[in-house]
Design a protein around this nucleic acid. Structure first.
Lengths: 238, 238
DNA sequence: ATTTTGTATTATGAATTCAAAATGAGCGCT
DNA sequence: AGCGCTCATTTTGAATTCATAATACAAAAT
């Protein structure tokens, strides 16, 4: 089937950069599983039954197991020797630890972003910010969260340090799971939006010290709300 | 055989908590490979031939491939679709990025360690420090490096944040490879030891701001020496 | 009734097999 | 001689098979 597409493209002469790309199965699988874990579809503590997952994904155990091993080093699943794997339980202490590390990284990112962000980076962040405002105005929590994430990731990326981006992304996956449980109050939601306004302003004016402080405060609030959400339905112990 | 031991123990009544523990093969393999990569035995850019490694390690391809996938998410190897894996090339830019992130983490660690380190943590760090001094006195570079690493890791651990420890450890593995090429000068070596004295003093007196500053300076020097070492024999491009 | 022990079942761990892609050598061609 | 092309070989990707450990269950004994 890919062949036909290629012939068609060859005929046009317009080489769209759409490479054929057959992604390795383990990549496909890891993305699927990661999504399902982050969205809570695979709940914390849930067992990963290889046979079941194989049938659901329509693959054999080999690439599945490779994906599970990779998710384990990402920290999203835990390997229990001879007893398979479970989705890493959401422990309050661990989430708190993760957020602390993310705070340190955001601080670095703020500093670097003020120095290195391109004008187009800023434009994009501003655009995402307005999209987020739109969803806030419409009280669309899920969409708001998504753009909120986009903005934070984009700020990190604007720092221009791929290692930083990667590290942050991995840690983030682990707390995003908790985030989906956090049904933040209207007041807190409004406040968070306000904080984002300030963060954007600090970044645009490339005021690193102020940006760092704002990011730190923003994170501190996030810690409170996430921990509160966890406390309410924290049961998943090891 | 385990049975006999157990019977013998049962007779004594002294139940030593020595569990049998058979580690999964992929763990054994990942440790072996990680060591060989960090020590440079598997050089940056080197291809990982599955058949060859299987024979050397005396295992089948399945656990080997699992280990390789895990090393890939750790960043020590790169996966080239359909063409296997190579040891991640040491690029100066990437190392610099990694060190920047580690700096942010050390800063956090310093703060937390001043607040959370137990007295036994401090005692252990002091002990390691003296071991390091001994190797410095004898001009045993490799042993010095090892204890240097121990000390830094122990400070991180003393912060009492397992996520921080893990994250730092992974990043560290990536730069340690470069470190082995750094044949630092006598003068720099002596200076580094002096810095460690100060770091220890700041930690013992739990002077967080001072410790953070000292760690930052120490890292800055490390950046210089590592980058210099890389520049001299930087060839391994992707 | 409860606990323990033996057995059957199931799930995971690892090796092997099969398939597909990439590499490399030889060959004909211009 | 240089170049591209085909085909054999090698190597990786994925599925399957085999082995072993964990679990569930039933029966027997206390």
């Amino acid at each position: 089937m890919g062949t036909i597409e290629n012939l068609a493209l060859a005929g046009t002469g317009a080489v769209t950069e759409k490479r054929i790309e057959r992604r390795p199965l383990h990549e496909e699988v890891i993305d699927q599983l990661r999504d399902r874990i982050v969205l809570g579809e695979l709940a914390p503590g849930a067992r990963l039954n290889e046979r079941v997952l194989c049938e659901q994904l329509g693959i054999s155990r080999t690439p599945l197991r490779e994906a599970i091993k990779m998710l384990a080093t990402e920290g999203l699943v835990e390997l229990l020797p001879n007893r398979g794997a479970i989705v890493t339980p959401l422990k309050a202490a661990r989430i708190a630890d993760t957020l602390a590390v993310m705070g340190a990284l955001e601080s670095l990112a703020g500093e670097l972003a003020c120095a290195n962000a391109s004008e187009s980076d800023l434009a994009e962040i501003r655009a995402l910010h307005f999209e987020m405002l739109a969803h806030h105005a419409r009280r669309e929590l899920a969409a708001y969260f998504r753009y909120n994430q986009f903005i934070h990731m984009k700020i990190i990326e604007a720092a221009g340090n791929p290692v930083l981006t990667n590290t942050y992304r991995q840690l983030n996956a682990n707390v995003r799971r908790a985030r989906y449980m956090a049904n933040l109050s209207q007041k807190r939601w409004d406040a968070a939006v306000g904080e984002h306004e300030e963060i954007l302003a600090a970044l645009v004016s490339r005021d690193a010290p102020r940006l760092k402080r704002l990011l730190a405060e923003h994170l501190a609030h996030k810690v409170v709300s996430v921990m509160a959400a966890l406390a309410s339905n924290d049961v998943a112990a090891a």
